[in-house]
Design a protein around this nucleic acid. Structure first.
Length: 279
DNA sequence: CAGGCCTTCTTTATCACACG
DNA sequence: CGTGTGATAAAGAAGGCCTG
């Protein structure tokens, strides 16, 4: 047996896993996009009718229209699922191309954006900006996440409650669980609130469910647990959403709300706070 | 700088339909 | 009527930023 290397030696032996790719190298995906762009470029006229025909002729190129209005492939999927009932743009483009284009037009201004971008000349700076795009989307993600948190915090603030945000609360047997808002504080929690908004999908939604299950498990009977859950990402993650909903049905948590029913949230929060003598 | 957040990418399972 | 294939849905892993 070899001896155990020291921690420092281990650290020094860590290496890079990913390989670096030449950003100018082509891939099958980029080739398809270039072909799609060329095809759009050659359209003699751009309007909803010609685009519907185009989409119907090339269903697999629909993502190019998404990119035109600033929708990545994943966002396109989730948006279509929300609006047209399915994330499958191929089927949609084949069966109801007009509906697809009308939607992109009304919601995202497709014709205008395509028209002005198609004939524009792009320089080196534009390319660098495009490559830096992932950074911008990550920043947007953070902002979207705080949206719900900010909303519920504003309500607690407006009601004049003492509260803490983004912390853990203590439940039975001294066990703790995470929460996004707690009244009046994590150490003496009476009301714990989870805020989980996702416009995209992924296993993070499963993690969010696990977190709420943890809250339900740790809570004392007298502690009130509420969850504000929203975002179109849940439409592609219905099994996870169902798990939260059944916690509610079984009264393991006391309330579940979307941004649209935040009025109920406020009313319930106020009622419980009054009951506990915080107001 | 650990921990938290959402999005993107990848893989696996399920479904629908054409074909022989 | 079984099978194979293309497409969608669902699940899992990774990436990248921000905040306290």
């Amino acid at each position: 047996m070899r001896g155990i290397p020291s921690f420092e030696e281990y650290i020094d032996s860590l290496g890079r896993l990913s390989i670096h790719l030449d950003p100018t190298a082509g891939t099958p995906e980029s080739a398809a996009l270039i072909e799609a762009a060329q095809s759009l470029y050659e359209l003699p006229e751009i309007d909803t009718a010609t685009l519907a025909t185009w989409a119907n002729d090339h269903p697999e190129w629909v993502p190019a229209l998404g990119l035109t209005v600033g929708l990545s492939q994943e966002r396109l999927k989730n948006t279509l699922r929300h609006a047209l009932g399915s994330s499958g743009w191929v089927s949609i483009a084949r069966a109801r191309p007009y509906e697809l284009i009308e939607f992109l037009e009304e919601e995202f201004d497709l014709v205008r954006l395509l028209t002005i971008q198609r004939d524009r000349r792009y320089d080196f700076g534009d390319i660098l900006v495009a490559r830096a795009g992932t950074r911008a989307t990550a920043a947007r993600a953070g902002a979207a996440g705080r949206r719900i948190e900010d909303e519920i915090e504003a309500i607690a603030e407006d009601l004049g409650l003492d509260y803490e945000t983004r912390t853990r609360f203590v439940g039975r047997n001294g066990r703790t669980a995470p929460c996004d808002l707690v009244v009046p504080g994590g150490g003496d929690a009476a009301i714990a609130v989870a805020a989980k908004g996702f416009d995209s999908t992924g296993s993070k939604l499963t993690d969010a469910v696990r977190e709420i299950e943890e809250m339900a498990e740790v809570r004392l009977p007298r502690q009130f647990v509420m969850a504000v859950i929203d975002g179109i990402g849940w439409k592609s993650r219905q099994a996870d959403l169902r798990r939260i909903h059944s916690l509610w049905e079984q009264q393991q948590i006391d309330g579940m709300y979307t941004l649209a029913t935040l009025g109920d949230f406020r009313a319930d929060l106020e009622e419980v706070a009054r009951l506990r003598g915080f107001l």
